[in-house]
Amino acid sequence: MVKATIKKIASTLMIAGVAITVASTTMAAGKISGKTERMVRSDYVTAVEGKTVAYVPISLGLPLSDYWMYGIQTSAEAAGMKFVVKDPAWKVDAMTQAISALISDKVDYLVVQNPDVQVLAKLLKKAEENGTHVIQLNMASNYRSSGFVGVDWVSHGEEIGQDIVKECGTGSGKSGKVAIVQGELTAAANVWFVAGLKKALGEDSAISIVNDQAAQWDATKAHDITAAVLQQNPDLCATAGVWGIMMLGSGQAVKEAGLSDQVLVYGSGSNSRPVCDALESGVLHKHFSYDSILQGRDVVNAIQAIAQTGLEPGEKPFALYSPIMIQDSKTVKATDCHDLIAK
């Protein structure tokens, strides 16, 4: 009886003890995780909230830059950051003025789309020396700043080149004639895209580049260039350029010449409604798309990470390359495309 009682007490005690141990352990664990959580949160808050993100594209009012703005602004404001935008409206002077002003205002983060590799390089360097982190968006400069978010242009060009080789090259039974429509000759996107494109095209001896001219991002110029090329080379197989909106002009020229079935029009850019419409109507044949709204979010994610690592501007430059999806008249779906952002 006694033995049984002792056993009972003992077991009770044991249970109690285990229970206490368990309970105390459980309590302690809860305490530690709450603290960590608060530390993480407070570090984040001090590093991120209230910081200013300034965004300077080449020009607003284009699907690309409007999507970026939407992506950056919504993400930045959701993270508690202030958002500033300057619109140089294609004017390099206005752009340098705006960036100079932002440097002297000492904004924390500067997101810039470079019109060419050189023009802003000195200014961006100055900005980083002045304590402003510079994120170069999609189009970089000769100066390597804190971060780059955007397309991996060389491989992007190569991909399109390889696709053209497949369509027009050896064994395709077509002329192999390709016309390249460049954008701004000295813009990073153009320089590296064309380099990749030419590299891929050069790998097939059946491919000949019959024309290579710059339309300076202007669809009208692209139209005129392509119309002239088609007159000289009615057997053209493909034409490719770095920006889909510009290539709409080329596509229109092909359509006007009644050669939509024969000449493939390649473009690249954001998955905007006009591009999708053009794919559906056959003005464009293939579009290598990236999601600019998500690129905008990538920018803000990068900023939040820089903010919390406490790195000095330009200390550890990094690149975030955007994923590419290939769209053509068969694969394009309405859901894949962003509507234009109403002003």
């Binding site: 340098t96 050189q118 000195k122």
Partner: peptide, 10 residues
């Protein structure tokens, strides 16, 4: 000297 740049809309 200031911008080291020459582009089509200069």
């Amino acid at each position: 000297t200031r911008l080291n740049s020459s582009s089509s809309n200069t």
